[in-house]
Nucleic acid binder design. Sequence first.
DNA 1: GATGAATGAGGTTTCATTCAT
DNA 2: AATGAATGAAACCTCATTCAT
Lengths: 206, 206, 206, 206
Amino acid sequence: MTDKKLSRREREKCRQRKEMIAAALSLFSEKGYHNVSMQEIAETAEFAIGTLYKFFQNKEDLYKALVMEQSERFEVAFEAAIAGPADEIEKLRNFVRIRRDMCRDNLPFIRLFLAESKGASFNLKAGLDADLRKKIDAFMEKLAHIFESGMENGRFQKIADPYSLAIALDSVIDAFILLWVESPERHPFPEDPDVILNIFFKGLLN
Amino acid sequence: MTDKKLSRREREKCRQRKEMIAAALSLFSEKGYHNVSMQEIAETAEFAIGTLYKFFQNKEDLYKALVMEQSERFEVAFEAAIAGPADEIEKLRNFVRIRRDMCRDNLPFIRLFLAESKGASFNLKAGLDADLRKKIDAFMEKLAHIFESGMENGRFQKIADPYSLAIALDSVIDAFILLWVESPERHPFPEDPDVILNIFFKGLLN
Amino acid sequence: MTDKKLSRREREKCRQRKEMIAAALSLFSEKGYHNVSMQEIAETAEFAIGTLYKFFQNKEDLYKALVMEQSERFEVAFEAAIAGPADEIEKLRNFVRIRRDMCRDNLPFIRLFLAESKGASFNLKAGLDADLRKKIDAFMEKLAHIFESGMENGRFQKIADPYSLAIALDSVIDAFILLWVESPERHPFPEDPDVILNIFFKGLLN
Amino acid sequence: MTDKKLSRREREKCRQRKEMIAAALSLFSEKGYHNVSMQEIAETAEFAIGTLYKFFQNKEDLYKALVMEQSERFEVAFEAAIAGPADEIEKLRNFVRIRRDMCRDNLPFIRLFLAESKGASFNLKAGLDADLRKKIDAFMEKLAHIFESGMENGRFQKIADPYSLAIALDSVIDAFILLWVESPERHPFPEDPDVILNIFFKGLLN
DNA sequence: GATGAATGAGGTTTCATTCAT
DNA sequence: AATGAATGAAACCTCATTCAT
């Protein structure tokens, strides 16, 4: 019984936190970190500003929590996409597909994530959390490993070093996402992952 | 005579403006738009703050002018790289080379440019100037045209639509630049443009 | 029976109140009124903040209650020291002794008391309670009366008016206490009350 | 000419600073540090709040500057009173007189000073500036030295150790000032310094 | 009766911008 | 024409107090 009550409180807290994060995400993604005030976030989330500060020590803390939590979800999905017994080609296809799906469902976060991972420390004074940077790096290594194993088992030619290929694939996907985010009609994200992957799969020169 | 005097004044003004832009560029690139004050820029440029406002209507105006002017220089260089009678392969090599060179010589601006063109409207309230966006788009079309003509004259296979290839190439170059900017020692930008271009030139699959 | 139950409740309440006062005293004395939050007091006293407000209408009320209650204990002790049949000299010695003892045992309250009775209304908006001021004044009159009766019965010379002597003695004791509070090792409070009283007892000039 | 202009600016700045300090002094002395807002000080001094912050880094800085500057004036006057060739008795008289005069002319600062030197660190988090504490201590030593030399040359009896006498005299003067500050009519500060000094000069016992 | 989450007024501080000199 | 002192709106954040559970 006490357990249940506690659990209700906990769930309530969790829900509130989620609403705050959601409001913050929506606003940050629309206007950028420095053009959003805590007052604004509180109002959007329909809480008093003091309540916001009960959940997050300060604005930067809120921002970091937001980026970290969302990134985590992305990371988990990406890792899942390239894990498992599938062959290298299928793994890459999965990766492209999951990127597309995650982006479709998390549009507001994409800008934030791209801005963070590319545009870098232009928002926070202390720069992006080292934790996130490490996670991104670690994932890139895993992506590179797919190319590497593909080369070892003869599926792939050694057209470039695996890490460079990972970086390249990642950046190309990002570029297509960005195009799509900016004008979804003119630049729909291709349904077939091979539209993107063929750039890497097929040779360009005769 | 009046003409000469005016001209001298003009030149003087131009010099002052350049110094202001330089100071702003250095500071913005280091700390980000919102973490730099007009006071700071004025002090770095060794002008009074009032003088700064004689040249630029407000902080956003200064920022936009800075981004526009610098971008212009980049654009001119990029256009030059892909103009002329060279064949498509050589043009792409030129493009990669010029990107590398411009970045080496304009390190402080690169972060700003990447943050602006990717991370986007995270600094300014009104977002990046439509003008710049158009110029970037126009250049992308030109880049795409290289791929297109290469396909028409049989130098390139039709592995993807030309615009996508342009976007892809551009983003891959950016990714390598970013790697290099962040850790120049671990990720030097390749001297030979083909290190990057081979990703596109050679087929990956057997 | 009901009576007994109520009495138990009453005792419980009294105990809780004491714990709150104790926590508040400890914190106020250490950090000063304005640098202590009600939250902090509640946590230190191990009560919910709402419970704190059941006992005291507001922060100022808590502070005043604290000062009043503690002062009361001091006053009672001081009054006892100078009451009774002892001669004037012994009464003054008793007074000095009891001041020393009370201070030793109530170190945290001393700062508060000295700050309040000297520094005055620097904490509260409405100033210290008139009640306390009156009590202090009344006690001063009693102290003065000792000097007065001593003069009347020939034990004391009329070197100054009795009230001034009372003020003087009180302030000198306070000064020694303050010295001792700030650096107990360098300025121990003299065991023998005459070390202080001799300033008054003996003449300075030849 | 340039010199004159600069000097005018400097004088203007000095005047402004004085006005700010005066407003702050008046308000702090009346209400206490924590019950005065920077807004209030700015309004009283008839400046914009931003201007206040041009002169003082923050509230604490303003407070410390205020206390230090005023204390300096007091210290200089006190030192002057006990310097010179006068005999010990006359020096003590001078000291009492100068305390009276300074207090009369600087009423608002007295409360602040007494609160600071007694009530102690109840206002600032960091406590009173160590500098001021040192100065007060140093002055006490000088006061003690008067008693010491008076004992050596036979003017004074050795009724207590010199430092204790210094502390005692100082605190007694403070006590009379406090009485006078609180109710000037009922407790006028005695014109004749010997009214106070006789407590020390004459013996109390028969 | 006890609790402590929620509130929001109010404090400190910054900084883009103006304008008198 | 150049200056930089003055401005004050608006940001971040705290904490005394309330009230639904």
